[in-house]
């Protein structure tokens, strides 16, 4: 038996909006730790890792580890039927081939339940080793989204270079080229407006902008994004989910051949 009650139900809608462009079908894994998901895009170029910790739910009951295969477009359709202030409860019985989403209005005067069929999904689970990163950039998520959007109108790939000058995002396309340089800036009114660049070693990597732009669908989840770079490793683009966990996107670099 599984019963997860999330008071801030809108969080779940934002999570779905963040990943459904990248991944179509995925297994949600439920354990005593929390509600999690790991999935790759169909080309196996990007990977998303989601964790919503058990402590973040008002009520969390998971009698045994359960993996529930869901079509994310269908799940998003169902969650769209909830009100923005609704409490969402996810329920499933052991061995059941369906999951129920229950929506309660804040004043408890409207209660609905939507039952969704589960599916069998063959998915590979990858081990993600702890790594030392050459550079870690912490910046406003809206700024990162704007840079990715702007550069995608010029080119298909972005070169992210970190040096002691700061972090440079560069692209090149048929109509021209663009460079955006950000310097560390901690003299801001609010901590979430700061740009902090931690560099152990200079690093420069090339990535497909299409994927980066897809990751920025997670922007409504957090004011801050953290980008971790190491040569010879996928970049990690992380959005923290307040008091609950995170969404981490991993993207394999492009390499010269």
């Amino acid at each position: 038996m599984l019963e997860l009650r999330l008071v801030q139900g809108s969080l779940l809608k934002k999570v779905l909006d963040a990943i459904k462009e990248l991944v179509k079908d995925a297994n949600f894994d439920c354990s005593t730790t929390g509600f999690s998901l790991q999935a790759m895009d169909s080309s196996h170029v990007a990977l998303v890792s989601l964790l919503l910790r058990a402590e973040g739910f008002e009520h969390y009951r998971c009698d045994r580890n359960l993996s529930m295969g869901m079509n994310l477009d269908n799940m998003a359709k169902m969650l769209k039927c909830s009100g923005n202030d609704d409490i969402i409860t996810i329920k499933a019985d052991d061995g059941s081939d369906s999951v129920t989403f229950m929506f309660e209005s804040p004043t408890q005067d409207k209660i609905s339940d939507f039952e969704m069929k589960l599916m069998d999904i063959d998915s590979e689970h990858l081990g993600i080793p702890e790594a030392e990163y050459h550079a870690i950039i912490r910046m406003p998520s809206a700024e990162f989204a704007k840079i990715c959007r702007d550069l995608a109108s010029i080119g298909d790939t972005v070169v992210i270079s970190v040096s002691k000058e700061g972090v440079k995002f560069s692209t090149r396309g048929d109509i021209g080229a663009a460079n955006v340089v950000l310097r560390q800036n901690t003299t801001v009114d609010k901590p979430e407006e700061a740009t902090i660049i931690e560099m152990n070693e200079p690093v420069s990597l090339t990535f497909a902008l299409r994927y980066m732009n897809s990751f920025t669908k997670a922007t409504p989840l957090s004011n801050i994004v953290t980008i971790s770079l190491s040569s010879e490793l996928p970049v990690v683009v992380e959005y923290k989910i307040a008091e609950m966990g995170y969404i981490r996107f991993y993207l394999a670099p492009k390499i010269e051949e």
Binding site: H44, L126, P234, Y250, A252, E256, E257
Partner: peptide
Amino acid sequence: VNAQRQITSFFSKT
């Protein structure tokens, strides 16, 4: 020419 690498060439199956 830049070639796109895959995630599976960095992380292995568990």
